[in-house]
């Protein structure tokens, strides 16, 4: 379970308060209008942003003071999830260790995980030689290999077409959530949340609301969500 205790984020005249928990092994979607602070909230959990107040707790341990790499977290950003000058194998290998030299055993691991996301034999290519969907798969492969219990997705599939995006979301569900990882994903599309999220937390009006089961939430949306959905 990931808990945010009295978390306060401030940035210029923007502020966001969060007091909630995310169920372990589940997919929780963060939804809300743009500029509400979904990405900022995710950045704070990942350790890129120092909160003004409050703590982030994972499995009864305060992780607020840890650097991004020390946290039990993998994150995928909207873009720049792969280093363009490194091969796919090197990029994915960074999930195992912070260097480029891999042992034969580690190479085999990389090849296996590439195979499992449908990128068999593409390890020697650079990201530019892959399609957008394949790049997303490579980034996901690194997350799989890093094997961290908590995965944050900051709309990494937003640039993909609808079919590819759905494919990637299904992959997230099968390969991450079904394997017991906790996933928190930012989205602005209710369909994404309905497709794979177990629960949804609405980010609006300076607060992150506690997650509510997806179907229940959309059947009876709170005012902030209703406004966002245009109902």
């Amino acid at each position: 379970m990931l808990r945010c205790e009295k978390l306060q984020l401030r940035y210029d005249d923007f502020s966001l308060a969060a007091e909630l928990g995310f169920a372990a092994g589940r997919i929780t979607a963060l939804i809300g209008p743009s500029g509400a602070g979904k990405s900022t909230f995710l950045a704070a959990i990942a350790g890129f942003l120092v909160p003004a107040k409050g703590r982030v707790i994972w499995a009864a341990q305060d992780i607020s003071a840890l650097s991004p790499a020390e946290r039990p977290i993998s994150i995928l950003f909207q873009d720049n999830n792969l280093f363009p000058h490194l091969t796919i194998t090197q990029n994915v290998g960074l999930g195992l260790r912070s260097g480029l030299r891999l042992t034969a055993d580690q190479r085999a691991q990389v090849a296996a995980v590439l195979d499992s996301v449908g990128l068999a034999g593409m390890g020697a290519r650079k990201p530019a030689a892959l399609s957008g969907g394949q790049q997303s798969r490579a980034a996901l492969a690194r997350v799989l290999l890093a094997d961290r219990p908590l995965v944050l997705l900051d709309e990494p599939f937003a640039a993909l077409g609808p079919r590819l995006k759905d494919e990637m979301l299904d992959l997230v569900q099968q390969r991450l959530a079904d394997q017991g990882r906790t996933v928190i994903m930012v989205t602005h599309d209710p369909a994404d949340a309905k497709r794979i999220a177990d629960a949804v937390a609405v980010v609006a009006d300076g607060t992150v609301a506690a997650p509510v089961a997806t179907r229940a939430l959309f059947e009876n949306p709170p005012p902030a969500l209703a406004r966002y959905l245009g109902k």
């Binding site: 991004p68 790499a69 994150i75 720049n80 960074l94 912070s98």
Partner: peptide
Amino acid sequence: FGPLGASVGL
């Protein structure tokens, strides 16, 4: 690439 580097521990 700063955020990506930080998240993979470079």
